[in-house]
Computed example of a mutant assay.
Amino acid sequence: MSLKSWLQGDSQKSSSFKRKSPETEISDSNSPAKKKIFTKELRQSSFDWYVQDTNGLWHCKLCRENKHDNAYAKGHEVPAKTTNHSRHASSQSHLNAVHRSTMKTQKPMQKLLEAKLHKDDEIALNLLKTAYHIAKRELPKDEKRHMVDYASLLGVELSKSNCNVQYTSSQSVSEFQAALAEVILDDKIKAIQQSEVYSVTLDESTDNGNLKRVIMYAQCVTEHGLEYCLLSNKQISEGSASAKNIVSMVVEELKSKGLDITKLVGLGTDGASVMTGLKGGVVKLLKEHSPTLIGVHCAAHRTALATSQAAKLVPHMESYSRSIASVFRYFHNSALRSNRLRTIQTQLNLPSIKFAEVHSVRWLSLDHTVQVMYRSYPALCMALEKGGNL
């Protein structure tokens, strides 16, 4: 640097330190002195957990969320000093609150449980699908054990590998199917409840234990078409299968399912007098609960009645039906004759089938019986020739 430039720079510096003029000093002395205002600045970057609530109290939100009993959890009307913040941040109570809040945010155990439950849900879903398939195909419940073994060969996990319980017993299958039936029934009932009207089909019969039972189906029309479901299959425990007892069961069942009986507009029956009696039948008594109810005689039952009664007017059909029935009894009452018939069927390369019985209460059962007999007619003729007359 040259001497000239250094001198110029020194002169510029000295000019910046010039003394004020007397006028300026007088004007400054007359102006009022400004008071220093103390303001507290909170550095939220370091203490972001120190916030103000709706009541104006400054508090530690972490300690308050975890319900700790300290001054910072209760709150301050005047913000505390930063030194107090530091002491509180290093306290064991605050550190525990931070740890718990972190665990709540990250939720490691919950994620672990969700992953475990998700895997268990997949296994449970596969087991439910298997039980549904068994019910849909009307397979024995013992088949589930074989289906699980076959699925494991294909790489599909239907049970827990580290668990001794495989859920393949008949009782487990029954419980799975009962749970599925309950869910399906709930969906069907919701659809019937949302429908404006619905109908019911009734039939009373006697089971193998000689107990009277009433079977009830419900139907309704939805946007997807006709929806129907089995409402109940209950035993008549008190009294006989009279119209009053049946009506009482129907009313109670509809009420338990949450179905409005006034929306019942149709009732399908087999045409028995207890169902369609003009004075005391089920249809007549149910009209007292739903005046718009219409009774419908089952078309299948009407067809059976028409064909059976029409056949009685033709003597040849009557004797023909008795002959078919006697053929069934001839082989059904003797194991020796049945074995002889199967031997002849095998020698003639015919299907080994049994003859069907003609039921007077089953519609068109005679047609099915004749078709079965026709498929093995040559073997029938040879068996009768060797065995003698009917």
Rank of each mutant, 00 (worst) to 15 (best):
R337P: 09
N245K: 05
C163M: 13
Y72G: 02
E25R: 12
S172E: 12
E157W: 02
V156F: 06
S319A: 15
N55C: 11
K257G: 05
G277A: 03
A272I: 09
S232C: 13
E25N: 13
F355A: 07
A300N: 08
K257Y: 06
E122N: 15
H133E: 12
A89K: 06
C163D: 11
Y198G: 08
I134W: 01
R329M: 15
K141M: 15
T303N: 09
V156T: 09
K20N: 14
I246C: 03
S237K: 11
N70V: 11
T130W: 05
S45L: 08
A33E: 10
A306L: 07
W363C: 07
I123D: 01
V274H: 00
Q309P: 06
L153N: 06
S46Q: 10
S46W: 03
K107Y: 00
V200K: 04
D53S: 11
N233Q: 07
E227Y: 01
R362D: 09
C381W: 00
V200D: 05
I215P: 04
K129V: 03
L384H: 05
L341N: 07
N162A: 11
G388L: 04
K129Q: 06
K61T: 14
M275K: 03
A33P: 10
D53R: 09
R322C: 12
E253S: 14
R19T: 15
S174Y: 02
K18Q: 14
K67P: 09
M373T: 10
K244Q: 10
S242F: 00
L153K: 10
Y228L: 07
Q92H: 13
H289M: 13
K234W: 01
E196K: 12
R87G: 05
I123P: 00
S232Y: 01
D207P: 02
Y320H: 03
H359E: 06
L42S: 01
P79D: 03
H76M: 08
V274N: 14
Q193S: 11
D149R: 11
K136M: 13
H88I: 05
D142E: 11
F331C: 02
T39G: 09
L158E: 03
E143L: 14
D142I: 14
L341E: 03
T102D: 13
P22I: 14
P351I: 10
Q345F: 04
T222H: 05
L180C: 08
G9W: 08
P22L: 09
S195P: 02
P351S: 11
N339T: 14
M373C: 15
G225T: 05
V314E: 08
S31K: 14
S321A: 15
A300L: 14
A124V: 15
R100P: 00
S91E: 00
V283F: 07
V214H: 04
V372M: 12
A306Y: 01
L264Q: 03
N66I: 15
S174L: 12
M109E: 03
T276W: 06
G277D: 07
C163R: 06
A73G: 05
M147C: 04
K35D: 13
V274T: 10
L267Y: 01
S101K: 12
S172H: 02
Y330P: 06
